[in-house]
Design a protein around this nucleic acid. Sequence first.
DNA 1: AAGAAGTCGTGAACCGCTTCACTGATACGT
DNA 2: ACGTATCAGTGAAGCGGTTCACGACTTCTT
Lengths: 361, 361
Amino acid sequence: MNRFTDTFSEPLHCDAVKPAVYCQCVSQKQRRVTLRDIADETGLSLAAVSYAMRGLQLPLETRQRVQEVADRLGYQADPIARALASGRTGYVGVLCGSLGDLWQQGIAAALGRGLLQASRQALIVDASNDPALEASLAAQLVDQRVDALICLPIDPAAEHWRQVAERTVLVSIGDALPGVSTAAEVVFDNEATVSSALEQLARLGHRNIAVLTPATIATPDRPAEVVVHRLAAELGIRATLHTSPYELDGAHAVAREILAGADPPTAFFCLADSMAYGVYAATRELGLRVPEDLSVLGYDDNPVSGLLTPPLSSYRWPIELLVSSVVERTVRAIDEGKHSRRKVLVPIAQPRQSVGPPKSR
Amino acid sequence: MNRFTDTFSEPLHCDAVKPAVYCQCVSQKQRRVTLRDIADETGLSLAAVSYAMRGLQLPLETRQRVQEVADRLGYQADPIARALASGRTGYVGVLCGSLGDLWQQGIAAALGRGLLQASRQALIVDASNDPALEASLAAQLVDQRVDALICLPIDPAAEHWRQVAERTVLVSIGDALPGVSTAAEVVFDNEATVSSALEQLARLGHRNIAVLTPATIATPDRPAEVVVHRLAAELGIRATLHTSPYELDGAHAVAREILAGADPPTAFFCLADSMAYGVYAATRELGLRVPEDLSVLGYDDNPVSGLLTPPLSSYRWPIELLVSSVVERTVRAIDEGKHSRRKVLVPIAQPRQSVGPPKSR
DNA sequence: AAGAAGTCGTGAACCGCTTCACTGATACGT
DNA sequence: ACGTATCAGTGAAGCGGTTCACGACTTCTT
């Protein structure tokens, strides 16, 4: 009966009684076409149309008839109503630990595209490297009823991940979340990278290498140290591990200090390109040439790394592979509740001109 | 009565009849706390609680009582239900013409943060420089019921903006959308930048300047050409306008051609830093030094521009100002339906070391 | 004292879709 | 010919809020 008044009152209202209101009607955002409209038009019930639009149950002929009317009327399902009714929003949260980092921007953008193709909408959110903010944003996204949350965690060991996993599908990129029941994990094999980098440098003759790793939240164990020392021992070289901020400026200061110290290294391996930029800045300041006086190796392969003088050798992630497998696993976890096995990604070397043999002393 | 069965059937079900099902109950994502729960707890009606939670109508004492219970129960309003009922989703679409460009990434990330502060969720979407995709994504966002759409348009003159504006609040950044009733526009005064750049270069003695502008969709009028020529005439210098792709590689090729041509310019003004990188690449290839042999001036001030050799002089946008005013205007348009006047933003010069006087010939 | 004008709060409709339980009708097996 | 499946489709109950119209109870006017 509501529809009755709807349908009949409007033209009456507008043409005959008060034309002034008619203008309002026109200027208003137009009314949506709803399932009701299609139901009325086809003479079917609301439920039948709902099923038909989703290709369920009904015979092909009916589905086609409904589809046709829907097209003619320009029907677009209201995702909000659908979400409320079905319990699935179609939203997937993408919580980036630090979207300031270019590699995260790249992944986030690619995830946005990939999810869109899988008919989901990404909600990209940035924790700006603040663990407390990360926790609160995660909770906020869960409250927003995302179907899944994909994270590039700042602190994989943080408590909040466990709570998120209890409330939604949780997928982690980069690091595994220890003790959390994630639906999928695509992790970076940093150990393989460190190994490859040190080996490469050792082969060129470097015997004293500085490894710069981003200052992360303290974790129970610090695997990086162990790994670096073991590998160095195996290669018979010296490798020192230094923590440094992700950002250029911070890394610049750290690098300057290292280079000014006693027995400076002949090569840097930086676990982020942005830190390698900082090393470049330090070399410029100290009048050192890359790679003659100092070899520098990055990690991320930012698009600009190829532009520096000299172009920075680096490692890059197979982003398309990463994103497609994350999206696929996430969607499967949402739709079928199936958890996937952990997937380990090995980076691809991108040699350029910032690495060479050490100066003979 | 539904609540009755809810409350009573579950323990019965689980403990007595089939314990197996109970486990399922436990492992399930826990049930949300709803307004109903608070209503039951306080003895108030649903409507009263709804009002109270939003600080409406009711006396302070009641509101506090409700708030207290809500806190105790850990109530979080369901944004989906709220959206369906109120017609406002709290989502704001951010449609970036080409999120590959760093300046757009910066703005998008900042908008995400700013909107979050205004308790809205940004839906960031990338048209990858494809006008057709831009149109379809815009429609998709509108169908998703965003409260507003903020765009960084590829083609401001495109037809689809008009349709979007009819269906939602439309805000444009960068360019004005001719003939479209936008709720707000924060536009870049590119003319001022070009003028400033040419003046600066002319003052240093440059008499032959190449201006590189991104290849955009053909618009009815090409104001850039007119502007450049007028300004050049005023300054008594020669300035040639070249279109080039946004990306490094494309710009590289264009710059190489220009520099290899007859009567090459002594300075480049690039309307995007990424294009300036291409010019740098061309100079390296041709053995030219910056700024001694060629001055280069960029536009955007990417974070990496300061890292090049030599650091690139550029212009940057006051991003915080841009974002805060866009967010403010957008929110006002959503909440109060008020359209704002166009705001024009003038970029800030960021001088570094890529500009100098021309070599005396 | 009687009506007017608030306060505080309630019941019910509604947003647009999904989904469950169920009905009639037709086809099937024997 | 009779009971049983299967098919095509329906009615109504949600989902979790918002909002409108209205009622009971105080308080203020005059």
